Simulated scan of single mutants.
Amino acid sequence: MGSHMARRLAQAGYSVAAWNRTAEKAQRLSQYGVRFASTPENAASEADIVICMLSSDAACQEVLPAILDTLTPNSLLLVMSSISVAAARKQAQDAQARGIRYLDAPVSGGEAGARDGKLAIMAGGNAATFEDALPVFQILGRPTLVGEAGSGSLAKLANQMIVAGTIALIAEAFTLAKEGGVHLDRLREALNGGFADSPILEGQGLRMIEQNFTPGGPAKYQIKDSGAALSLAQSMHLTLPISETVDHLFRRMVEAGDGELDHSAVIREIQRENGLPISPPHPKA
Results as ranks from 00 to 15, higher is better:
A10P: 03
K156C: 09
R21F: 11
I67S: 04
A128L: 13
M5A: 05
A173Y: 02
G275C: 08
S226L: 15
F137Q: 00
G33M: 04
A95F: 04
H263E: 06
G125K: 05
Q31N: 10
G33Y: 03
D225K: 02
A233P: 05
A164W: 00
D132L: 10
R207L: 04
G150I: 00
I242S: 14
A120Q: 14
N274P: 15
T239M: 11
T245C: 13
L119W: 03
A127E: 14
R35A: 11
G194H: 13
S108R: 14
S153E: 02
Q96F: 14
T214R: 09
N192S: 15
G125W: 00
M236V: 09
A265S: 15
S279Q: 11
E62R: 14
D258Y: 07
G99Q: 06
S30E: 11
S231L: 10
V50W: 01
T39Q: 07
E202D: 13
I167C: 02
V79W: 01
I139G: 07
T166P: 00
M53L: 04
C52T: 14
S38C: 06
G2A: 02
G124C: 07
K25I: 05
G147Y: 03
A12L: 04
G152D: 06
Q204R: 10
S153V: 04
G259P: 09
Y14T: 06
T175R: 13
F195H: 09
A285V: 13
V79Y: 00
P218I: 05
M236L: 15
Q138H: 13
R98D: 12
Q222W: 08
R98A: 08
L230E: 07
S151D: 02
G216F: 01
A88G: 06
A18P: 08
L145W: 01
T245Q: 15
G227E: 09
H263C: 04
K220R: 15
S75L: 02
A219E: 06
A26N: 00
A173E: 02
L119S: 05
F137L: 12
G147E: 04
A155Q: 12
G109Q: 05
N20A: 05
I162P: 10
L230D: 09
A158V: 10
Q160P: 14
L206A: 12
S198H: 03
G117F: 11
S3K: 10
Q211C: 14
G203C: 06
R8H: 04
